[in-house]
């Protein structure tokens, strides 16, 4: 009997049953099919391109092996490196601002206010209309800036910083409206999370004499922490693929440039993807939920009760 149990355990190291695995893969299937049908091959080709000089001749593509020279050249490309550093700094500044703003707005929109539906629609509207070329047009005419914010004065005050650092900080103030526009999805995710929290928990806490502030930190914050992580991940990806991102523009420029070409652009894209993955890893390390802590705490409490 013991032997049988041990064998079963060996086949189920994670403690999940076959049914769990099947369900998991059914849910994963659309993504997996999409990845292998549409992404895997192009990813492989792109990596291949990045190690070639790619010429788009009138009779087809010509590949001239180039090793990892494109990567080495990019590491010495001043403007590319400058754009990458600016992107990291800008993301580090914008992610907390966007996520915090989205959380505050979500809490407000979750309250009992008049015309709540309309306000929710207003905050979500930019996600639908202010994308792609529309966004470019709007930023082009200065609609993404708050005229009252004197970015020149801020730039002057921060002139002691190197331009690579100063520029993203100033642009944060110059793009306050854009940050608001970039919060639509995050607000929606937070709203969903807030609505999942049981009202009874708040009622119980209130009976025990908890203030609203305490309720927020002891009930709301732990409940939505996974959503903070999710929103941070979403924001990184959103900013990384935004049409206003200069790195994306630069990669497109490399691609269409006669001098650089597809090979160089592919190498740039891989370096950029690596950096974005690194940012995601940082978000994960900072915001992940450590599950093991809860059982330990429960065990301690249980022992005390015994």
């Amino acid at each position: 009997m013991d032997k049988k149990i041990k064998e079963k355990r060996r086949w189920k190291p994670s403690g999940r049953t076959l049914r769990n695995w099947v369900y998991a893969y059914i849910f994963l299937a659309p993504w997996l099919i999409g990845f292998f049908l549409l992404v895997a091959y192009t990813l492989e080709r792109s990596f291949y391109f990045s190690r070639q000089i790619v010429a788009i001749t009138p009779v087809g593509m010509v590949f001239i092996p180039h090793g990892f020279t494109n990567y080495a050249d990019l590491m010495q490309h001043t403007f590319f490196i400058q754009n990458l550093v600016s992107f990291v700094i800008q993301s580090a500044l914008q992610i907390p601002v966007i996520v915090s703003f989205a959380l505050i707005i979500a809490i407000l929109l979750n309250g009992k206010i008049r015309a709540r539906g309309m306000f929710r629609a207003i905050f979500f509207l930019p996600v639908i209309i202010a994308t792609g070329p529309v966004m470019n047009e709007l930023t082009g005419i200065g609609a993404a800036t708050v005229p009252a914010v004197n970015t020149a004065a801020i730039a002057g005050a921060l002139s002691f910083l190197p331009p690579m650092v100063q520029s993203p900080v100033v642009s944060l103030f110059g793009q306050l409206i854009m940050i608001l526009w970039n919060s639509g999805i995050q607000i929606l995710i937070f709203l969903a999370a807030l609505q999942k929290i049981s009202v009874e928990q708040y009622e119980a806490a209130k009976i025990d004499g908890a203030s609203g502030w305490e309720c927020f930190w002891k009930i709301t914050a732990p409940a939505i922490k996974p959503m903070v992580f999710l929103n941070a991940i979403y924001t990184v990806v959103w900013l990384a693929t935004s049409g206003q991102n200069p790195v994306i523009d630069q990669i497109a420029f490399f691609m269409h440039s006669g001098f650089y070409g597809y090979g160089f652009a592919s190498a740039a894209a891989f370096i950029y993807s690596g950096l974005v993955l690194l940012l995601l890893l940082v978000c994960f390390l900072i915001l992940r939920t450590r599950k093991e802590k809860v059982p330990k705490l429960v065990k301690r409490l249980d022992k005390r009760n015994w």
Partner: peptide
């Protein structure tokens, strides 16, 4: 309008 693109791509 630019010499580099046609040259580097053998057009």
């Amino acid at each position: 309008l630019d010499l580099t693109l046609p040259v580097n791509n053998g057009w």
